[in-house]
Amino acid sequence: MVIKYSKFLFFLFLITLIGSVSYAEPHKQLSDYNFFKDIKNQIPRDETVPYKIANPLFSDYSHKFRFVHMPLNTAAEYSYNNVFNFPVGTTIIKTFAYPIDERNLDKGFLLLETRLLIKNENGWIPLSYIWNNEQTNAFLKYTGHTFNVSWISSNGQEKYVRYRAPNVNQCKSCHEINNKIQPIGPKGRNMNINFVYPNGEANQIDFWHDKSLLNNIPKLLKKNPTIWDDTKYEINERARSYLDANCAHCHQRGASASNSGFYLNIEENNSSILGIYKTPVAAGRGSGGLQYIIDPGKPADSILLYRMLSTDPGVMMPELSRNLQHEEAIPLIREWINQLK
């Protein structure tokens, strides 16, 4: 009797043991993934492809080094407006860094955090690795981290920021749409630009295609994306590109600011939903005493600009990943609202 019972328990014990071991634990150190030839200088191995995007999110003037690593002999599916459909096993890698002196990038960078999005059978997993002071490796941290950073900006000013690496829940608040975590950047309209690879400059989509990393590319690639700070484009297109990149990850249907009914994704064209003469719903003091999200022709009376100007965490937008004003974008949005009718 005791023996029988113990066999049963032993069986359960084994199951439990196997169950608790089979969790795929993420690596504790960034170096364990073996993405880089030279991790300190962010030089990737051949299988890790660097890229950049046309309209990046402003993150307090940090520089970002982006890479994607797909399993051997797999490829992503192209899409113009949506993020490429990456194969299971893909990791998207993004390192946030500040230049020592932005006027001379050869002086090097201070690396702060490397964020990973790892795609498994159930979807994307966000992780953040915090760089050590010696800048030799980065270590998994779930709760985020605060850095006090100073650097010399491109105009020679000494700048300072309290940089906050997000905790993994905060990752979700920007990366989650319809309860699924998604990358944001690598979509067709963001990738159709050139990159300087070790063997020379090339269009990123052509390059990925040549390396068999990307399928289903249309014969004729759609036009180049409007880059928000490229003055050869119209103000309206530039502003919409900027707002799409900086706001629409939350301000679109199904994303974390869906309850606002205020959406800024580039496909949106209903003027109320875009904020024109739209009154705030749950803005609290974020309204700044103003009536409308966008008051056409009156940037100073528009909540949108007010919240871009603010650095008060209870007022500012975006809510996360920003502690400084984006000085270069403010005139663009001001001018855009000014010429709206």
Binding site: S6, K7, F10, L12, F13
Partner: peptide, 20 residues
Amino acid sequence: MKINKKIIYFMAFIFISNFS
């Protein structure tokens, strides 16, 4: 297979504590 009672209790404990 002979397993003494203490080990049974131990395994039961591990099992339960994993699931409670």
